Structure formats: C-alpha cells, structure tokens
Measured scan of single mutants.
Amino acid sequence: DIIVVALYDYEAIHHEDLSFQKGDQMVVLEESGEWWKARSLATRKEGYIPSNYVARVDS
C-alpha cells in the first residue's frame, strides 16, 4: 500500500472529497492526475485528496 502523510489541513469542497488535518496518514487507493482517492487511517473514510497536499511515507 502507498501511505501518505498530510502536509497541510484540507477542508473538503465537494461531497466526494476527504477532509484531513496536517499529520494525518492515508492509504492511496487510486492515483489519477492531481486528485487521488484515499482512505484515512484514523477515520477509515474514503474520498478524493489533492495530491500536492500530501507526501509519501517511506516504509
């Protein structure tokens, strides 16, 4: 799995977006363009995230 960590807070604009806080970790489910589908490890919610707001966690 690709794990990313939030670099900034993000408040969902559309209902399919995923809100998150700086430091939150998410599993990337699908990478396509600038918006990635991800699942929050904390809340288990899924939605689209702006890929420029996150960084990959080296395992």
Rank of each mutant, 00 (worst) to 15 (best):
A6I: 01
R39Q: 10
Q25G: 04
P50F: 06
W36M: 13
L7C: 09
K22A: 10
L18F: 06
L18M: 10
L18Y: 02
D9V: 04
Y48V: 05
W35V: 08
S40M: 15
R44A: 14
E16T: 14
G47S: 01
S40P: 04
Q25P: 05
T43Q: 05
W36E: 01
W36K: 06
I49D: 00
V4M: 05
S59K: 09
I3N: 04
V28A: 03
E34N: 13
E31Q: 15
G47V: 05
A42H: 10
Y53V: 04
V54E: 02
D58H: 13
V54S: 00
V57P: 06
Y10W: 10
V54M: 05
M26P: 01
K45A: 10
V57A: 08
I49P: 01
I3T: 06
E31R: 13
N52S: 15
D1Q: 14
G23R: 02
S19M: 04
A6Y: 01
S40L: 15
R44D: 13
V27H: 07
N52L: 09
K37P: 06
I49L: 04
R56C: 09
E16Q: 12
Y10T: 00
Y10V: 02
T43I: 04
D58M: 11
L7T: 03
E31Y: 14
E46Y: 07
A12L: 02
V4N: 00
G33L: 05
H15Y: 12
H14S: 13
Y8R: 14
H15M: 12
E11I: 14
M26N: 00
W35H: 08
Y10S: 02
E46G: 03
D58T: 12
D1H: 14
S59D: 11
M26V: 02
T43D: 08
Y8V: 08
H14C: 13
L29R: 05
H14W: 10
K45C: 10
P50C: 10
N52E: 10
D58C: 12
V28D: 00
L18T: 04
E11F: 11
D58G: 12
A6E: 00
S40F: 06
T43R: 03
V27M: 10
I49F: 05
G33F: 04
P50S: 05
I13L: 12
W36R: 03
A12V: 02
A42P: 05
A55T: 12
D24W: 04
F20W: 00
S51W: 10
D9H: 07
Q21M: 11
W35A: 06
A12H: 02
L41P: 06
G33W: 03
V4D: 00
E11T: 14
H14G: 14
Y48L: 10
S19A: 09
W35G: 04
Q25R: 15
D58F: 11
K37Q: 07
E31F: 15
E31K: 14
S19P: 07
G23P: 00
Y48G: 03
E34R: 12
A55N: 07
L29F: 08
E31I: 14
R39G: 03
Y53M: 12
A12P: 08
K37G: 02
I49K: 00
K37Y: 15
W35S: 07
E30H: 10
R39S: 06
M26Q: 00
I13K: 13
D17E: 15
G47Q: 00
V5Y: 10
R56P: 09
T43C: 05
D17W: 14
S51E: 04
D17S: 10
I49V: 08
V57G: 05
K37M: 13
Q21F: 11
V5T: 07
L29C: 06
D9Y: 04
D1G: 14
K22G: 03
L29I: 11
Q25F: 15
Q21G: 07
G47D: 00
D9C: 07
R56T: 07
E30A: 09
L18S: 00
L18G: 00
K45R: 11
V54G: 01
Y53E: 01
G33N: 06
V57Y: 10
I2A: 09
Y48A: 04
A55E: 12
V54L: 03
S19N: 06
D58A: 11
H15K: 14
H14I: 05
G23W: 05
A12K: 06
M26T: 01
Q25H: 15
N52R: 12
Y8G: 04
V27Y: 09
Q21V: 11
M26G: 01
A42Y: 08
T43A: 04
R39C: 10
R56L: 11
D24L: 02
I49N: 01
D24Y: 02
I3A: 03
L41N: 05
R44N: 15
F20P: 00
S51H: 09
I49S: 00
S59Y: 12
A55R: 12
E11N: 11
V28S: 01
L41A: 05
K45P: 00
D58L: 11
D58I: 12
Y53P: 00
T43W: 03
E30W: 10
G23A: 03
K45V: 08
S32Q: 11
A42N: 11
V57R: 07
S32E: 12
A6D: 00
H14K: 11
I13Q: 13
D58S: 12
S51T: 06
Q25E: 10
F20N: 00
A55L: 10
A38S: 04
E30N: 11
G23L: 02
K37H: 10
E11Y: 11
A38C: 11
I49M: 02
L18E: 00
R44K: 14
A12W: 02
V54N: 00
S19E: 06
Q21W: 08
R56I: 11
E16W: 15
D24P: 01
F20I: 03
S32M: 13
E11K: 13
F20H: 01
Y8T: 06
D24H: 06
R56D: 04
S51Q: 10
D9E: 05
G33P: 04
E46N: 04
Y10L: 03
A12F: 03
E30T: 09
L29T: 06
K45F: 07
D58P: 12
G23F: 05
A38F: 01
I3F: 08
N52F: 10
V4G: 00
K45E: 13
D1W: 15
V28R: 01
D24Q: 07
S32D: 11
E16N: 14
I3V: 10
S59E: 11
K37L: 15
Y8H: 08
S59A: 13
E34A: 13
H14F: 09
D24A: 05
V4Y: 12
G23N: 05
D9M: 04
R56K: 13
A6V: 03
Q21T: 11
V5P: 00
I3C: 06
R39D: 02
Y53S: 09
R39V: 11
A6P: 00
A12T: 04
P50I: 03
Q25M: 15
E46Q: 09
H15I: 13
D1E: 14
W36V: 08
R39N: 03
V5H: 05
I49Y: 00
K45H: 09
E46W: 07
K22T: 08
S19H: 05
Y53T: 03
L18R: 02
S40W: 02
W35M: 12
R39P: 01
I3S: 03
V27K: 08
I2G: 06
A55F: 08
V27C: 09
Y10H: 06
A12G: 11
E31W: 15
V28Q: 01
V57C: 11
L18W: 02
A55W: 08
Y53L: 13
V27Q: 11
K22S: 07
E46V: 14
V4C: 09
G33T: 05
E46A: 07
S19R: 05
I2H: 12
F20E: 00
R39E: 06
E31L: 14
A6S: 03
Q21H: 13
E34C: 14
R56E: 06
S32K: 14
R44L: 15
Q21L: 12
P50G: 03
T43N: 10
A42M: 10
F20D: 01
S32C: 15
Q25V: 15
K37I: 10
L7V: 06
G47I: 01
G47R: 00
A6L: 01
D58R: 07
A55M: 14
R39W: 10
A38W: 02
W35P: 06
R44E: 11
R56Q: 08
I2M: 12
E31C: 15
S19V: 04
G47K: 01
L41D: 04
Q25L: 15
D58W: 09
D58Y: 11
E46C: 10
L18Q: 01
S59Q: 14
D9W: 04
